[in-house]
Design a protein around this nucleic acid. Structure first.
Lengths: 207, 207
DNA sequence: TCCGTTCGATACCGCTCGGTATCGTCCGGT
DNA sequence: ACCGGACGATACCGAGCGGTATCGAACGGA
């Protein structure tokens, strides 16, 4: 919003903080948190280490901020699902699954940022861990809500099932064939939703 | 085999190579691969770095060997499931799920070694990656075979579903409450198996 | 116009890492 | 009795890490 690039030097350049976060997002996702040094982030952001430490207290704080942004992306997907299918929780859940399924090829050979970060940060007191846990709790709450609204019996159980499937799919993307994974995921979620279908349910749109 | 401890110094001590692998297993699982230095492994194995490098070319080779052992444990679980329930594929799959579910508290706050290692080793040419991929392929093949034998329609799809659920459960163990996760997992797998039950199926044993 | 802040560049610090070299010692096979 | 190989201890190397200090230049608001 407002004035993005305050004065483009030669090419249109974002302010340093944004460039740093963009570079961090790219590198953390592709190489992992611990493999990426602060210097590498600075290089990719076309700035210096000092600039990074002017905007972020420590590298850990930068990691946490990155995950906060990723979490916001997922939240936005929830918002979109609700906005595009108001009052139709099944379609909302399917839209969510589609968001994950379509994201799989982009993530390609690296899995979910949250799962990977959990593996790389065993220390539960790490600031990024709190971001992850809060996000997961929030996401679970929303998903359980959707399941309940859809009239599914035992919404918590079903939400857990869907969560497991979504996370498992993202993990499995790192091995083997990616092409099938997306389709498989969608079919699985459809199966779960159809299984406890309400008697007067609308016919499925998907083939 | 043969004479394990060739001459216990004071307490019965395994030979260095075994001690090293034991220490590595413990530390890699608890702290992660990249967080654990060779020196730390040596200390815990009550030996020295030099001894480690006499038995393993590099740290990466040690990591690969560790994962090879873990993979063998999982294979043994498959073997046991088949041996204890011969000709009853549904019971075999449930035994497998129980193996994972019961392992969750032990893994406690660290997830599946394979998943974590994938996150920590983005380099697909890493020797450990080949171990993981081969193991996953083997495991999938066996699970698909069980599903086919159980007469489930589209065994590949069902096997993928079960795989996703198992992996998702292990991932979710790292957050939130562990207690429920095991029970939830079992109920989910039961649901999957019951869903496409053969017409003349035996009554379920679980409530 | 001037002043405070930010930016970029470079050099530096202490630490840990994976891996190597060296040397004395112990132990088992012949 | 001997000898070769594994073992234990220690010191070391180069590289990379997260984080800091310093200094000049550019820029925006008053």
């Amino acid at each position: 919003m407002t004035s993005t690039a305050r004065r483009p030097g030669r090419v249109a350049k974002l302010p340093p903080r944004e460039r740093i976060l963009d570079a961090a997002e790219e590198l953390f996702q592709r190489e992992g948190i611990r493999r990426v040094g602060v210097q590498a982030i600075a290089d990719r952001a076309e700035t210096t280490k000092m600039a990074i430490y002017r905007h972020f207290e420590t590298k850990d704080a930068l990691v946490a901020e990155w995950l906060r942004i990723v979490a916001a992306d997922y939240q936005a997907a929830f918002d979109r699902a609700e906005a595009e299918h108001p009052g139709r929780p099944r379609e909302q859940i399917l839209a969510l699954a589609r968001f994950i399924a379509e994201g799989l090829p982009a993530i390609s050979h690296r899995g979910c940022p949250f799962i990977n970060s959990l593996a790389e940060l065993p220390d539960r007191s790490h600031p990024a861990r709190q971001v992850i846990e809060k996000h997961k709790a929030h996401q679970t709450r929303r998903l359980v809500g959707m399941c309940a609204e859809a009239g599914l019996p035992d919404p918590e159980q079903t939400a857990a099932m869907i969560t497991f499937v979504l996370e498992g799919a993202q993990v499995s993307t790192q091995n083997g064939s990616i092409d099938q994974t997306g389709d498989r995921l969608m079919r699985i979620v459809e199966t779960i939703l159809d299984q406890h279908r309400s008697p007067a349910g609308a016919p499925r749109t998907t083939a």
